[in-house]
Design a protein around this nucleic acid. Structure first.
Lengths: 337, 337
DNA sequence: TAAAATTACGAAAACGATTTAGTAAGGAGA
DNA sequence: TCTCCTTACTAAATCGTTTTCGTAATTTTA
């Protein structure tokens, strides 16, 4: 590998001069700078990141904490798209992406914070994970720049969809389609869940809608079985709902399967509504009516905020960034009445 | 951050001694070693990877080239599972995973090989990408350890499913179910496609099956629309097939949609067969009959081979590793005759 | 014209680890 | 007692950058 030294030799200048020239520092003459850059390119010079990091404490590498307790975050259609967008944005800015080690099985495993320090991440993005653990807490309290997606810590920048708005729009849409008996299977307790549930009740109230207690049930995010089970329960009520909200598109599929098994048609007999707007939900029968989260913008914002936090910590305020989404009108909600 | 120096000071020994003790080198006394390790732990010492890498040229970081031309490799259900398994295996062995930069938009973008050298990857895994490009070629010819998934280069270790076997098993299964008019929509030209197509013909011959030329059509991997289009063509033949093979599960969904639109039932009127065995194919109606690739094993093998190549280059031979898969009997193939 | 300021460059230290080539102390063998 | 091994440790070089502090040469100012 060619190093600064080689370039310096070839140009007849010192290593310091080469370093400064390549970094566009001010105290280098125009001609020298141009010459050095030419030679560097010609020799195929690539900076040695390790050496640079050793000196500057900057790795241009961002850590990604992106797994949930059960399975990999990678198989999570929604988050994977956020990650993709995050990655593209970061790469444009000269950063690479490395996963934080979530592998619990290893003995002597490092904590998230330890791993981040060991790897020298300039910053970390946290998403799609159980936020209520000691390790995440330690990372949040640590001194590495962090942004979170879909969760708010009071001392950290957070990015999230406008969940409240999403639920509200879905509900008023369904209401406009004539539905009055609307059930909500929501995900397990979390900040996002809380926002959605409270928004559901608020919006219902605004519409003058009565929501019987047994219409609101706790399911599990991305769990088709749980969703199926709750669906059965809802449909066997003496006064069953005509429309069911699900925690997300994926679990909505679980509901769909059960409804079909019961010999009922969607949307003629039961209407269903998802959340997230994952691509496959548009492609498979029945096309889901859902709230599309703007995964592109979420990922992009997360990367931009994190990089800003790294590069201009002074000018960056701790804030929540709410990203708008949009209702997608599929074919899973019947117009009635 | 605490460094070797700090530990040395506290223990009253030299930096060299501490380094050797922590690396379990032989010429350190038992007591000293134990003492040093204790102190290191107590002080919360974490080795500085950059410094180590600078000296040893080892980063314990693996590059992942995992994107296709159109969209991110991350949204690719099959590969994402391979990646997940790769990641877990690598992490167990002390390696982290970083994506190679696929972002074409940047000016001054580095090539894959340049990026790999810049980042100092100990090795790179290539998958899910257009293998026939200058850049991939450059990487393959470079001096960094590489394994490929689902593609064979003659000088590199390759991991792939037993595609030939897969097609053969699917075909004989379908044959046993009584089908004789079997069509095959295959993916775009590639090593894997070639294996599958030739296996299809070979297996058909073995079964004494006649495959009309118009029954074998080129589609596009993971493209529901292309699959739908081909499906229409096949079903409007004067002598249409009773069963259609698709390039993968995802495009099979595209076929399913078209078939349903035409008012035909699956599997009563037309049978369909996927490939890959992605989880959602088991969860959505109709449950697909498909060939499950062992994504867990594929990823694990890839990681193990790559690490072996890095750590014991001498004892590792360049080979192709074929991973068995298994037929999954869903409900998309009708028993007839 | 002398002093001051500016420009363009270089020497050398530093970052934190690994590794080579020692060396002192102690024990074994003659 | 003297030599020769071991054993257990250290000094110092090194990896490739960045950065601070000089300094010589040139230009500007008084």
């Amino acid at each position: 590998m060619v190093s600064l030294k080689d370039i310096a030799q070839k140009c007849g200048v010192s290593v310091a001069t080469v370093s400064k020239a390549l970094n566009d520092q001010s105290d280098i003459g125009q001609e020298t700078k141009i010459k050095i850059k030419e030679v560097a390119k010609e020799m195929g010079y690539l900076p040695n990141l390790s050496a640079r990091a050793l000196k500057t404490n900057r790795t241009y590498n961002l850590g990604v904490l992106f797994s949930d307790e059960s399975r990999s975050g990678l198989t999570h259609d929604y988050f994977v798209r956020v990650l993709e967008s995050f990655k593209v944005t970061a790469e444009k800015r000269g950063y690479d992406i490395t996963f934080l080690n979530c592998n619990n099985e290893r003995k002597n495993r490092m904590s998230f914070l330890e791993h981040s320090k060991y790897r020298g991440f300039d910053g970390v993005v946290i998403a799609c994970i159980d936020f209520y653990t000691k390790e995440v807490e330690e990372l949040i309290q640590g001194d590495i720049p962090v942004v979170t997606i879909d969760h708010v810590f009071n001392n950290r920048v957070a990015i999230m969809s406008d969940n409240a708005r999403g639920i509200e729009e879905l509900l008023s849409y369904v209401y406009q389609q004539g539905h009055r008996k609307i059930a909500f299977i929501h995900g397990a307790a979390s900040a996002v869940t809380q926002i959605r549930v409270s928004s559901f009740y608020r919006a219902a109230e605004k519409l003058g809608l009565e929501i019987p207690e047994e219409y609101v049930k706790e399911g599990i995010y991305r769990d088709m079985q749980a969703a199926g089970q709750r669906t059965k329960e809802l449909l066997s009520l003496k006064n069953p709902p005509t429309c069911i909200f699900y925690p997300d598109d994926y679990s909505c599929f679980g509901g769909v399967n059960v409804i079909k098994e019961m010999g009922l048609g969607i949307p003629q007999d039961v209407s269903v509504v998802g959340f997230d707007g994952i691509p496959i939900a548009r492609q498979i029968e029945p096309q889901l009516t859902t709230f599309s989260q703007d995964t592109f913008s979420l990922g992009k914002q997360a990367a931009e905020q994190l990089i800003r936090l790294i590069e201009k910590p002074k000018t960056t305020s701790i804030q929540q960034i709410i990203v708008p989404g949009s209702l997608f009108e599929g074919k899973s909600v019947e117009k009635i009445g």
